[in-house]
Design a protein around this nucleic acid. Structure first.
Lengths: 97, 97
DNA sequence: TACATAAATCGAAATTATTCGATATTCATG
DNA sequence: CATGAATATCGAATAATTTCGATTTATGTA
């Protein structure tokens, strides 16, 4: 867990919104064809008003920081929050900040 | 409390180090002439290997984010952690992240 | 194999962050 | 009022971030 990588990833409103929307996929991504239990696929996040390539870059940043997990199923990649890393980060911040 | 301002302020190793060193001034700034109860004055942070103007800019960023308080005494400005804002931020992260 | 869809990557432009040295400001002291 | 010390601000160079459209890659399907 790289704390600075995580802080840099969180220091952006769009990425914070992505992480937040992932907390309740049923509320925020009701249009997804695939079951939301699998996760949310990348294209769904374009409703935040960003282009496909920008969304992809943000998701890559979140993944690099360990804040989301990915799971490929066919041509789709499903994203979920990585609650373990998020909890570990929050605990570290409580302790060290 | 602007969460994004705080996250941006924290997403930098130098500023994180400043905040951390302020947790135990007696350990990290034993050379300061003035009593450390007043806080730590800006020039003390130059021991982190950054120039005076760079340190000043980092302290300004931390102050703008509300993470430190300042107190002017004569020609010195003493810095302390703003534990209230830090605690508020940590609580918000626990709740919202 | 050809085509369609999802996502990643590339290249470029605009903005923001980081850092410095030099200069300005603020305040105390002689 | 002149000087010195602490801090802030300015201007500039460089690097990193953000964003896009275009292209590429990977996968599934006709």
């Amino acid at each position: 867990m790289d704390k600075n990588e995580i802080l840099k990833a969180l220091a952006n409103p769009a990425r914070l919104e992505i992480l937040n929307h992932l907390k309740d996929p049923y509320a925020h991504f009701p249009t997804q064809e695939h079951p939301l239990e699998l996760g949310v696929c990348a294209s769904q996040f374009e409703r935040c008003g960003l282009s496909q390539s920008t969304v992809s870059a943000h998701l890559s940043t979140l993944h690099r920081a360990g804040l989301v997990t990915t799971r490929r199923l066919g041509q789709w990649i499903f994203y979920k929050r990585n609650e373990e890393t998020i909890a570990e980060f929050l605990a570290a911040m409580q302790k060290e900040l």
